[in-house]
Design a protein around this nucleic acid. Sequence first.
DNA 1: TATGAAAAGATAATCCC
DNA 2: GGGATTATCTTTTCATA
Lengths: 169, 169
Amino acid sequence: MSDDLDAIDLRILEHLQQDASLSTAELADKIGLSQSPCWRRIQRLRDEGYIKRQVAILDRTKLGLDMQIFAQIKVGRLDDTERAAFERSINNVPEIVECYSVFGELDLMIKVVAPDVRWYQEFVFDTLMKLPGVQDVRSVMTLSEMKYTTAMPLPRKGGARTAAASKKR
Amino acid sequence: MSDDLDAIDLRILEHLQQDASLSTAELADKIGLSQSPCWRRIQRLRDEGYIKRQVAILDRTKLGLDMQIFAQIKVGRLDDTERAAFERSINNVPEIVECYSVFGELDLMIKVVAPDVRWYQEFVFDTLMKLPGVQDVRSVMTLSEMKYTTAMPLPRKGGARTAAASKKR
DNA sequence: TATGAAAAGATAATCCC
DNA sequence: GGGATTATCTTTTCATA
């Protein structure tokens, strides 16, 4: 449970969260290390949970999913059982790609991918409104995606003040 | 540019977007195919752009990034040059992980990851408010992440009415 | 404790059917 | 699409510092 990352670990993570198809040798080369230590570090980063998983990112629009909508939802008080059921429902709807409980007037912020407006309209009435306790749904349709990344900010070499660098662990 | 996916392609995509660390042989086995055709299909799905890339998903909280915030931003009219500069700025800030232009009262919806409230406060004043044309920032802090996935909904075997299935291509 | 070189094993990529 | 071959990469072992 040694819990600190050195500069080399961070460079490995930075590369892998941009492109996990790199071979160990290529990656080792990029960071000026030989294969074995590079491989062991990757293994350790996996074992310690810094790397959660490795996934393929698909082209949303090529799959006909041209729309993305943020839906803000007002939910009434739920007991623990209802809450668990709610969360299970959310996870069973593949078109809901993100869901957060949030501070403020509305209780949930969810991100939905959809093929078109008609589909989404049905989705709101047939799926969202039927989730337990849902009282109100306010939808914000996106016009364009200016940025979408799965990459987390990591402390950078220059010691620049980034999010990841400012937190004492 | 043959543009249709059969049931096997979809099963391959489904597996890979959940776990891209599967070997071709393992994947082939899961879908009842032998290695060569499975490999060729994966290659084709890559070439045709259905698979955009392969990334490592890191553990946000292990990196000290415990907060996620949706910031809705009002931006004044921008000409093309300013717009391009804006988009470049967004892409240069690693803590901004998603950014969409949206319909409605406010113009942009961005998702930010941050270590703590203090960091985020500084970020709003030192970074967000200094982006060209920004007039107003409204922040919604998330309390908990109920779902986050990079996986897109794909048409399913049963012919269930999913988002991906309803769009004619 | 970490590295590098090299062997052993597994996988990816190509061939032919 | 399948089977077999080759090339490449991953993983282990071992020697070194």
